[in-house]
Amino acid sequence: MTTSVLYDAPGPRTRRRTLVGSVLAGLLVVAVLAVVGSRLDEKGQFSAEKWDPLVNPSSDTFDQVWNLLGGALVNTLVAAALAMAFSLVIGTLLAVLRITASRWYRWLVVGFIELFRGVPVVISIFFAARVLPTLGVDLDNLWFLVIGLTVYNSVIIAEIVRAGVNSLPTGQREAAESLGLRRAQVLGLVLLPQAFRAMLPALISQLVVVLKDTSLGFIISYEETVRTAGIIIQNLGNPIQVYLVVAALFIAVNYGVSRLAVYVERRLSRGKKAAATLSATDPAGAGAGGGG
């Protein structure tokens, strides 16, 4: 952040001005927080009665609440994991289909992908839960959620994988073909493994999207975190506190996953740089060059 496009390294006068601005901005932030806090306090939002079930282990509902939330979090993670796994498989198949399709049916694959990319996830989940039972498909709500999420995300992943394959140097394909590999081998042995490697950060980021979208399970009464939070709130009457905890859970999980994506991206680009220069330049300098 030391080298910004927008401004030079500050001189003494600018530094003084920045300091004044910092103090003013800091005061403003504190003032806003104080107003919000005092209003919440007026309404009794900091009362023990509202917080105890969540933070006080000796409260009689504490164990019950956390058992519910823990189970719900597991349900959320299970749905996300299943949806991600299916999306990866189907998405890769779709990408391969789109890359290898001959002209007379490629429009069909492209049309399919564009169609499902334009449909909101809520609608595809709702569609699965409402339409499939009328067609005689009787499944748990978990599976309706997973199907809805998979329909949407497999299309996104297909596009990510295709972008990955397209980003590879053409020499890779040419070299593989000149070795006499068949089309399937070129894709399976040479292009896809590299595409997955290049697109790993994007795929991990997609996991964050899937995790957030599992919360839509509440619409079809799947007992994931948000739905369970609603049930707890009906009994205890403390929506702000419970949703604060739920938000913290989601932010913690998703922030961890996004950091993982950033870490993988750094590692991948570092590997590429090292391969390009063919020399291990300063191993200790990793921290110095760590600009955003």
Partner: peptide, 24 residues
């Protein structure tokens, strides 16, 4: 950015519906 990017829209909406009236 950290809060709103990592929080599901459903939770943000619940917060608006339950939280905003509480702060007036």
């Amino acid at each position: 950015v950290t809060v709103f990017r990592n929080c599901p829209l459903t939770v943000v909406l619940f917060f608006c519906a339950f939280g905003l009236p509480e702060i007036g």
